[in-house]
Simulated assay, not measured.
Amino acid sequence: MTEQESVTPSPEELHAVKESILMQWDRLPSDHQASMALVLVSKVADGEYRGWLLSSMALLNPQGSLPVDVSDEHLKQIGLTDEEIGQLDETNHRNIRHRIINHWLTDWFWQELEYQTRQVLEEKNTVSGGSIGER
C-alpha cells in the first residue's frame, strides 16, 4: 500500500480535488476529454466499482440497456392532444425515457429486487421441503 492510499482525505479535501480536476478538464479540447474519459473509465472498470460504473453508464444510453420507447401513440394513450404531442421533439422523448429509467432504477429496483429474490427463495424452499431458517 502506498502512502497516498493509506491516508483518507476529508470530504472537504475530496471536494476540492474534484473541483480542481473539473476546472482542468474544461481546459482540454473535446477530443482529449473523450480519450481521457476512456482512460478513466478503464481504470475504474478494473477495480471494485466496475459494476456500479457499468450500471451508471447504461443510464446514459437507456435504449442500449432497457427497452423503453416513448412513441406518439403512447402519448395519445395517456391523454395528450395532437397539439401537445407536436410540442415534443426527439430530445424531449429521450429526456422522458431517461426520467422513466431513472425512476425505475432509483424508486422501484430495490423493491422489485427484494420481492423477486424472496419469491425465488420461497420457490426453492417449497421444492426442497424445508424452511429457509432450517438450512
Score class of each variant (00 low, 15 high):
4 Q>S: 10
4 Q>D: 08
4 Q>E: 09
4 Q>H: 12
5 E>R: 14
6 S>Q: 12
6 S>R: 12
9 P>L: 15
9 P>E: 10
11 P>I: 09
12 E>Q: 15
12 E>R: 14
14 L>F: 06
14 L>S: 10
15 H>K: 13
20 S>H: 13
22 L>K: 02
22 L>M: 13
23 M>S: 11
23 M>C: 05
25 W>H: 04
26 D>G: 15
26 D>H: 09
27 R>Q: 06
28 L>G: 01
29 P>E: 04
30 S>Q: 08
31 D>Y: 12
32 H>R: 08
33 Q>M: 12
34 A>L: 12
34 A>I: 15
36 M>L: 15
39 V>R: 09
39 V>A: 13
41 V>G: 00
42 S>C: 02
42 S>N: 15
44 V>C: 00
45 A>Q: 08
46 D>L: 14
48 E>M: 03
48 E>P: 04
49 Y>E: 00
50 R>V: 05
51 G>T: 06
52 W>M: 04
52 W>K: 02
54 L>Y: 11
54 L>P: 01
56 S>K: 09
60 L>C: 12
61 N>Q: 12
61 N>T: 10
61 N>W: 08
62 P>L: 07
63 Q>C: 05
63 Q>S: 13
64 G>E: 12
66 L>Y: 14
66 L>H: 02
67 P>Y: 11
68 V>T: 11
70 V>D: 03
70 V>S: 02
71 S>L: 01
71 S>R: 00
72 D>C: 00
72 D>A: 14
73 E>R: 13
74 H>W: 05
76 K>W: 02
76 K>Q: 14
77 Q>L: 04
78 I>T: 04
78 I>P: 00
79 G>R: 05
80 L>W: 01
81 T>N: 02
81 T>A: 00
81 T>H: 03
82 D>Y: 03
84 E>C: 01
84 E>Y: 02
87 Q>L: 05
87 Q>M: 08
89 D>T: 04
91 T>D: 13
93 H>E: 05
93 H>V: 08
93 H>K: 15
96 I>H: 04
99 R>N: 13
99 R>C: 10
99 R>I: 11
99 R>P: 01
100 I>L: 15
102 N>L: 10
102 N>W: 11
103 H>N: 09
104 W>M: 15
104 W>L: 15
106 T>V: 05
107 D>E: 14
107 D>K: 06
108 W>C: 02
109 F>E: 08
110 W>C: 01
111 Q>V: 06
111 Q>F: 09
112 E>N: 08
113 L>T: 04
114 E>V: 13
116 Q>Y: 08
117 T>Q: 11
117 T>C: 07
118 R>S: 07
118 R>A: 06
119 Q>V: 08
120 V>G: 03
122 E>S: 12
125 N>C: 14
126 T>W: 07
126 T>V: 10
130 G>M: 12
130 G>P: 01
132 I>R: 06
134 E>R: 05
134 E>T: 04
134 E>V: 03
